[in-house]
Amino acid sequence: MFLEIIKAILMGIVEGITEWLPISSTGHMILLEQVVKFNASEEFMSMFRVVIQLGAILAVVVLFWGRLWPFGLRHGRVISKPGVWQLWFKVVAATLPVLVISPLDDWMEAHFYNYITVAAMLILYGVLFLVVESRRTAPRVTHLEQITYRDALIIGVWQMLAIIPGTSRSGATIVGGLLLGLSRACVAEFTFYLAIPVMAGASLLKVLKFAVSGVAITGTEVAVLAVGCVVAFVVSLAAIRFLMDYVKRHNFTFFGIYRIALGLVVLAVAVVSAMV
């Protein structure tokens, strides 16, 4: 069991970093799973890869609680915050496209969770980051309040593309937001908020599917899941702070280059695996 916990810690670290940075958690998970293989059923692993994201979501809630909670106190009375409600309505608007395509999630995982697809998406969006940043002009949206419902819906369409393994949910939404003219800090923060309903919904769905699958969960698997979520939460706190600080002084070019390099590494691993 001790070895399985160490593996869960490693997975939590990778999830906590790669979920928020636009570098594809799936690509890193594929590489990590080459050396970190759990003694668990495939049904559990399919659920684990998604539910571990709950720890990452909790980090967003903790860090941005003041901006996300739509109620406050004034002179001892509970008041509503219209600006926060507006933000949540825009988050809901951006979530709608994902709801349309979500029934295909398992099919996409079964058919496209492979080296070639992940490497192709890593490289494609890496190139997109480089192109978008090379043509970057002054942003028209620098505060969340300036995001329109049209902006939110279009960003939601970009988020929908993340159903393809290797795309990166944050990578897709950031590219879409940059093309719309959002500032780097603004689109990064909005991307964090979008993760809450999307990832929470995906996690709940995976848990329900696992529950009805009839596969029993062992005590070790429960411990692995709990440790993975806790580690993902702690690491996410640091990763989110890092990204918000980074985009204030830098652009996303580095992440584009990193994605291309990682995509080439994934292809190399695929070739070596095919030869073995």
Rank of each mutant, 00 (worst) to 15 (best):
89 F>K: 11
75 H>P: 07
70 P>M: 14
30 I>Q: 14
12 G>T: 06
61 V>G: 06
8 A>C: 08
80 S>A: 15
51 V>L: 05
24 S>A: 10
24 S>L: 10
55 G>H: 06
78 V>R: 15
41 S>Q: 03
61 V>Y: 03
48 F>P: 00
62 V>E: 01
34 Q>N: 15
28 H>P: 13
76 G>M: 13
86 Q>W: 12
29 M>K: 08
76 G>P: 12
32 L>A: 09
31 L>P: 09
40 A>W: 04
74 R>I: 12
32 L>Q: 10
71 F>S: 14
46 S>K: 10
63 L>H: 07
29 M>R: 08
54 L>Q: 05
18 T>H: 13
60 V>Y: 01
49 R>I: 01
59 A>W: 00
65 W>A: 13
60 V>T: 01
23 I>N: 08
14 V>N: 07
37 K>L: 09
31 L>S: 07
61 V>D: 04
9 I>Q: 03
84 V>E: 04
18 T>G: 12
11 M>P: 07
54 L>D: 04
17 I>S: 01
58 L>F: 11
82 P>H: 10
63 L>W: 06
70 P>Q: 14
16 G>S: 04
9 I>V: 15
5 I>M: 09
40 A>L: 04
13 I>L: 11
59 A>V: 00
26 T>V: 12
55 G>S: 06
14 V>E: 04
75 H>L: 09
8 A>E: 06
37 K>F: 06
30 I>W: 13
84 V>M: 10
39 N>A: 11
87 L>F: 06
62 V>F: 05
80 S>Q: 14
59 A>D: 00
18 T>K: 12
84 V>T: 15
32 L>M: 12
34 Q>G: 15
50 V>C: 04
6 I>A: 03
2 F>W: 11
77 R>L: 12
38 F>W: 02
50 V>T: 05
3 L>R: 05
17 I>Y: 02
49 R>C: 01
54 L>N: 08
